[in-house]
Amino acid sequence: MAVEINAMGKACPMPVVLAKQALDGGENDVTVLVDNQIAVENLKRLAESQGMAAESATREGGFAVRITGERKAAPAPEPAACCPTAAGGATVFIGKDFIGDGSRELGENLMKMFLYTLAQSDTPPACLLFMNGGVKLPAGEEPQVIESLKSLLDKGCEILVCGTCLNYFGLTEQCKVGTVSNMYDIAGRLLTAPRVVTV
């Protein structure tokens, strides 16, 4: 059955959206009335992507684009190409540059090993958040720590480093890995993360 959609006066992307709704509803002969050439071009692309034909004709005050034919099956969604984020990984909050109490020296070594282990893991964390003394890790001079953090970054782990904390320790220019961030973003990550691990 043929349907006609009046999309006159509607700005992009509404004509495409209305046409797509009709196609999604099983229609295979859809005419869309639009008042600008851009909508015509966008509707032609929509038809093409669905394996259907489109022809446009002028109508009073604009154009009529008729989309007809057999709709092809929806293509599989394309995989994320750039800047992947590790789905499902934990968010790790790091508020100091050592782990546990007892021996500071042991604690610093444990932190180094902890980051190394994260970097080697098949399921790296989605996000690392550095605050207070923790910022001394991405802004420090320990090559193995920097190496581990860079490797995590490459695996799609997001690294946020508190700018206020860097500033407090006079390390603003020293941050070697990650994005200098703020309380708003860090609090946002903590509140929306499915799982938070505090070290």
Binding site: K20, N42, K44, S49, P75, P79, C83
Partner: peptide
């Protein structure tokens, strides 16, 4: 580099 999924959206005619 393209943002993930934008190619499908461009194919669909969601162009500014």
């Amino acid at each position: 580099p393209f943002l993930p999924g934008v190619r499908a959206l461009a194919e669909m005619g969601l162009l500014p």
